[in-house]
Amino acid sequence: MKTVYHPAASRGHANHGWLNTHHTFSFASYYDPQRMQFGALRVLNDDEVVAGRGFGSHPHDNMEIISLPLEGDLEHRDSMGNTTVIREGDIQVMSAGTGVVHSEKNKNLDRAVKFLQIWVFPKERGVEPRYDQIHLDAGAERGRWQVVAAPEPRDGAVWLHQDAYFSITRAERGQALDYPLHQSGHGVYLFVLEGSAEVDGHSLGRRDGLGITETETFRLVAGAEGARVLAMEVPMTVG
Score class of each variant (00 low, 15 high):
221 V>T: 10
180 P>Q: 14
133 Q>C: 11
108 N>E: 15
66 I>R: 00
66 I>N: 03
175 Q>G: 06
106 N>K: 05
18 W>I: 01
227 A>P: 02
42 R>E: 11
192 V>D: 11
30 Y>D: 14
53 R>A: 14
63 M>C: 03
220 L>H: 02
229 V>G: 07
156 G>C: 04
113 V>Q: 05
61 D>N: 12
228 R>G: 12
119 W>H: 06
150 A>N: 02
195 G>L: 13
197 A>G: 13
193 L>K: 07
154 R>Q: 05
130 R>G: 03
6 H>I: 01
205 G>P: 03
37 Q>V: 00
156 G>V: 08
55 F>V: 03
73 D>N: 15
237 T>I: 12
18 W>L: 00
168 I>C: 02
185 G>P: 01
207 R>W: 15
32 D>Y: 07
178 D>W: 08
151 P>Y: 01
178 D>C: 12
5 Y>D: 02
71 E>Q: 13
22 H>G: 08
177 L>V: 09
107 K>L: 08
151 P>R: 14
213 T>V: 15
2 K>A: 12
135 H>V: 11
78 D>L: 08
100 V>P: 00
37 Q>W: 05
190 L>Y: 09
104 E>C: 07
210 L>P: 00
90 D>E: 08
29 S>I: 13
157 A>C: 10
209 G>F: 13
73 D>Y: 10
2 K>F: 07
37 Q>K: 05
118 I>S: 00
60 H>E: 05
77 R>P: 01
68 L>K: 04
235 P>N: 13
124 E>M: 15
15 N>V: 01
218 F>H: 14
164 A>T: 11
166 F>R: 11
135 H>I: 02
47 D>T: 02
215 T>H: 15
187 G>R: 06
100 V>H: 08
171 A>K: 00
165 Y>H: 11
186 H>C: 11
26 S>V: 05
116 L>V: 11
19 L>M: 10
34 Q>T: 09
215 T>L: 04
209 G>H: 04
165 Y>V: 13
39 G>V: 03
89 G>L: 15
31 Y>D: 09
142 R>C: 12
210 L>M: 06
181 L>K: 05
2 K>R: 14
134 I>V: 05
91 I>Q: 02
37 Q>F: 08
99 G>C: 05
165 Y>I: 10
58 H>P: 04
149 A>E: 11
190 L>H: 08
168 I>P: 10
48 E>P: 13
191 F>Q: 10
54 G>D: 01
187 G>H: 02
122 P>N: 06
133 Q>N: 13
47 D>R: 03
89 G>K: 06
30 Y>S: 07
230 L>N: 05
61 D>G: 09
190 L>R: 01
